[in-house]
């Protein structure tokens, strides 16, 4: 297993998935990094790495595990984003949009959120079934229903159908 190649290929996807799932960029970073640290102790075929990482990450999300020392260091060293400077209107609008999307996503069960988010990351149905814990033959139906529910929830929040710039 080429760890560096796996890290460069998979870290952005794992972080994005975790950030979308948890709504907390700090937690997403902590868990993504912890999953890769644990990967260092493994010897897996290349095609098993990604589902393994996402499974470990989901276990960490469920357990609420995090590296407090790393987070404390992050808090000490990261530039503070304070309220001293008034937030531009575009930023306010973006935050409101994020909150609405988050609210729409939270109308789904965690299982359905996982299904949608893993689909967004390009996983095959068999991989999704393994990580989420459902029968592979049911993934298509579950995803179709979850997509419809989420799209309805997004519509009901009045969120315009446009991606961010």
């Amino acid at each position: 297993m080429d760890f560096e190649a796996q890290f460069q290929a998979l870290y952005p996807s794992l972080y994005r998935y975790l950030n979308r799932l948890t709504g907390d960029p700090d937690v997403a970073e902590d868990i993504a990094q912890e999953a890769f640290v644990r990967l260092l102790r493994q010897s897996l075929p290349d095609d098993e790495v990604r589902p393994w990482l996402f499974t470990v990450a989901m276990n960490l999300v469920r357990d609420g595990a995090r590296r407090t020392d790393r987070r404390q260091r992050l808090l000490q060293t990261a530039p503070s984003v304070s309220g001293h400077v008034p937030m531009p209107d575009a930023e306010v609008e973006r935050n409101e949009r994020i909150a609405l999307v988050r609210r729409a996503l939270n109308t789904l069960s965690q299982r359905d959120q996982q299904l949608l988010l893993m689909r967004e990351e390009g996983f095959k149905y068999e991989e999704i079934a393994g990580v989420v814990g459902v029968a592979p033959a049911s993934v298509g139906t579950l995803i179709a229903r979850a997509l419809r529910r989420f799209a309805e929830a997004v519509d009901s929040q009045g969120i315009p159908d446009e991606p961010p710039e």
Binding site: N19, P25, E29, E120, V154, I159, P163
Partner: peptide, 15 residues
């Protein structure tokens, strides 16, 4: 497509 567009709003860069 609606889902992809909406979820993209949640993305933030890692520090």
């Amino acid at each position: 497509v609606r889902t992809s567009h909406a979820l993209a709003w949640l993305d933030r860069p890692a520090s």
